[in-house]
């Protein structure tokens, strides 16, 4: 069955929808967690430490976190690979363009592709910046995420990259959430307006919630 799913355009799109929804679920949790930065360094750092001890004593230190990381890596890779393969197929299926151009035709599709590439690059930068500290601007210190975040958003490029990426997330989810509902066969004429509304609200909440942190640092609310 795995073969049938992966070899079919409809099946590959299902992989994309499921992996996208897994990432979306994670983003909601991540966004809520980030907002704890507004309650001060102690609470934020304590929350980050808690992430490593969730599930104890059943789980060992950091086990739960690693399970989440593995699920996310699988989701990102599955999502990006299917997006790449489907996009290549789509471009090959329409080799000659119309002479009479209508820009709107592929607006959503192009935004999703470019947005996806931006998000992919962002994910790499984001991990190197705040998880491993490899490209961090200040003196990165593991276990001190509050200071690390403040350092990142004290640079103009840290803010710029982050803001662009969060706008991309919003646009991606706006089309993506509704698309996933169609791909998984749960959309319908009666549900269409509700699904679009949920997609818009999710996109708006996530973008606003994520952007609150750099805005907080820039305005000095978080320092």
């Amino acid at each position: 069955m795995a073969r049938t799913v992966w070899d079919s355009t409809v099946g590959k799109k299902t992989v994309m929808a499921v992996s996208g929804l897994i990432m979306l679920l994670y983003l909601v949790a991540h966004m809520i967690g980030n907002l704890k930065i507004f309650f001060g360094a102690d609470e934020f750092n304590h929350y980050a430490h808690w992430l490593r001890t969730v599930g104890e004593p059943l789980m060992h230190y950091e086990w739960t976190l690693w399970v989440i990381r593995v699920v996310l890596v699988v989701a990102v890779v599955a999502h990006a690979v299917s997006a790449y393969q489907l996009s290549r197929r789509d471009i090959r299926a329409r080799p000659s363009k119309y002479v009479h151009k209508k820009p709107r035709a592929s607006y959503a599709t192009r935004t999703m592709r470019w947005g996806g590439i931006i998000l992919g690059l962002f994910i790499v930068w984001h991990i190197l910046d705040l998880t491993t500290g490899t490209v961090h601007s200040g003196g990165f210190e593991a276990g001190k995420p509050y200071q690390n975040v403040v350092d990142t958003f004290s640079t103009w490029y840290g803010n710029a990259i982050y803001i662009v990426a969060m706008l991309a997330v919003g646009l991606h989810i706006r089309h993506g959430f509704w698309s996933a509902a169609q791909t998984l066969g749960v959309g319908s004429r009666t549900r269409d307006r509700a699904l679009k509304a949920v997609a818009n609200v999710l996109a708006l909440l996530l973008t606003a919630g994520f952007l609150a942190v750099p805005v907080g640092v820039m305005t000095g609310v978080v320092s």
């Binding site: 409809v10 590959k12 799109k13 489907l86 789509d90 299926a93 592929s106 959503a108 089309h175 791909t183």
Partner: peptide, 10 residues
Amino acid sequence: GFGGCTLAGE
């Protein structure tokens, strides 16, 4: 060799 759906709605 048809493409896949991206729900563009065209």
